[in-house]
């Protein structure tokens, strides 16, 4: 009980002391300011230790949240306290201001990069990888030939084709989408092919004993069994797609987009906008990953990695 009380009181104390220290920065005597800094650090450390033993969902969530807040706070205090030049590292508050100031630009960049290059490229690349995997499924020869080739391509620095795609498809979003297609295609092909081999021998024989044909076996047995690996590729690809689109823009986009914004504003030393764009990219990446993970949970609930411990 005492631990629980500490676990709920310390974070509150830490946050309050942190806010006070931030407010006092530069206005109050140094000794008072230092006191609040020390209290913040001690309370956070204590809270993190107390929370480490917790098992409830709230306690599990509180640890990383508090840790994240501590990092943000320390970043803010260090930048402001040491008067770090905004050309090197802007304070989080400055990033927030930049975010608010450039809201429209950021939204336009997001639309161009995410809603066009990423989403369209991702959809085409994943569908194509899946379709090719199904198409070569009946040919062991092609599977053995394309398999190693595709795994090799998955390890290639495919983003580097960006300048070539720009040459072929122009400076607009289609060239970035093309890079995304290439980046997502091979992991999907490899995973789907591997997934289609997941169903066990016994399950295959069961279908054989029912005289089930190729397509019935594919639909009733092999595709469901392949789902976990297909989702692995879908999740991996959601990150790869964003990287592909952003990095492809580093190679040249005279119009806009998140990668373009990062590259040009970094060159102009306007790091507030850069950090704001990075925040958007990070949020877009983790939210899309999270959504796919939720879908995965809904569709492969039966997989051992998701099963609730066998009750009844």
């Amino acid at each position: 009980m005492r631990r629980r009380a500490a676990a709920s009181a310390l974070p509150v104390l830490a946050i309050a002391a942190g806010l006070a220290a931030r407010a006092l920065l530069g206005h109050a005597p140094a000794s008072l300011f230092l006191l609040f800094v020390l209290v913040t650090l001690a309370a956070t450390a204590g809270a993190l230790f107390a929370l480490a033993g917790g098992t409830s969902l709230a306690e599990r969530l509180a640890s990383p949240l508090l840790f994240g807040l501590l990092v943000l706070w320390a970043w803010e205090m260090l930048v402001l306290g040491l008067k770090v030049s905004p050309v090197l590292l802007p304070a989080p508050s400055a990033v927030a201001v930049a975010f608010a100031d450039h809201y429209r630009t950021l939204a336009a960049d997001f639309r161009l990069t995410y809603l066009h290059s990423v989403v369209i490229g991702y959809a085409i690349g994943c569908c194509l990888g899946f379709a090719v995997a199904i198409a070569i499924d009946r040919s062991p020869f092609l599977k053995r030939g394309l398999g190693p080739f595709a795994s090799l391509m998955s390890a290639m620095p495919i983003v580097a084709v960006a300048p070539i795609m720009i040459m072929w498809f122009g400076f607009g979003w289609p060239s970035k989408a093309a890079v995304v297609v290439l980046m997502t295609f091979f992991p999907m092909l490899v995973s789907t092919t591997a997934g289609l081999a997941e169903a066990g021998a016994m399950e295959h024989e069961l279908m054989q004993s029912y005289a089930a044909g190729y397509s019935a076996t594919l639909i009733k047995l092999r595709l469901p069994a392949a789902l976990p690996l297909i989702f692995t590729a879908l999740k991996l690809n959601s990150t790869l797609a964003l990287i592909g689109a952003v990095v492809a823009e580093f190679f040249g986009t005279p119009i806009g987009g998140m990668g373009f914004r990062i590259a040009t504003e970094a060159a102009r030393m306007d790091l507030g906008v850069v950090w704001a764009t990075i925040t958007v990219a990070a949020l877009a990446g983790s939210i899309s990953f999270g959504l796919i993970a939720l879908l995965e949970r809904a569709m492969t609930f039966w997989h051992p990695s998701f099963r609730a411990p066998a009750g009844s």
């Binding site: 399950e203 024989e205 004993s209």
Partner: peptide, 26 residues
């Protein structure tokens, strides 16, 4: 014939009832 294997070989993504109706669907 119906064949019963050494292991149940049930499809984990189907409910018990839908496992039983698998051959009927086919």
């Amino acid at each position: 014939y119906g064949y019963v294997f050494q292991a149940p070989a049930l499809f984990p993504w189907r409910t018990v009832a839908r496992n039983i109706t698998l051959p009927l669907e086919l």
